[in-house]
């Protein structure tokens, strides 16, 4: 189903782990994270949704941040995953897979009219 508009509560549920996964790929900043999420097919994530998630991850010690001078414009806040964040991601990614498999098992399969 080629869609980029998902129910808001699905996005809310997956965003913390997805954002953590993007930061774990490489050190990055807010706008680049939003672009990466969109490329991955999760839809357009607004700044007002993204930054509270990033701040929460930082509060929980899963990522750290530092400000760096931008080229011409204002500075950029770069996020880096911590060892704890990496461990959390591995554990939750496995749990998420199990969870979605179970949910998928319960839902009618695509094309069926159960």
């Amino acid at each position: 189903m080629p869609t980029d508009v998902w129910p808001a509560e699905w996005v809310r549920a997956t965003l913390p782990l997805s954002v953590l996964a993007v930061v774990a790929e490489a050190e990055t900043y807010g706008y680049a994270i939003a672009q990466r999420l969109q490329e991955a097919g999760l839809g357009a994530v607004k700044g007002g949704t993204l930054y509270p998630v990033l701040n929460r991850l930082e509060q929980d010690g899963l990522v750290t941040s530092s400000w760096r001078e931008g080229a011409g414009g204002p500075g950029r806040k770069f996020f880096t995953v911590t060892p704890r964040g990496r461990a959390h991601l591995a554990e939750r990614a496995a749990a998420w897979q199990t969870f979605t498999e179970r949910a998928t098992g319960l839902l009618p399969s695509v094309g069926s009219t159960r």
């Binding site: 807010g30 706008y31 607004k46 700044g47 007002g48 930054y51 509270p52 931008g70 204002p74």
Partner: peptide, 28 residues
């Protein structure tokens, strides 16, 4: 600074990207 840096990258109006200032402040 997060808001300013983000809208400098996206070219969006901050109200559009983050919602009304009062509501975003309350959320944060």
């Amino acid at each position: 600074a997060e808001v300013e840096s983000h809208v400098a990258d996206t070219g969006e109006d901050p109200r559009e990207a983050f919602g009304p200032a009062r509501e975003y402040a309350a959320a944060v």
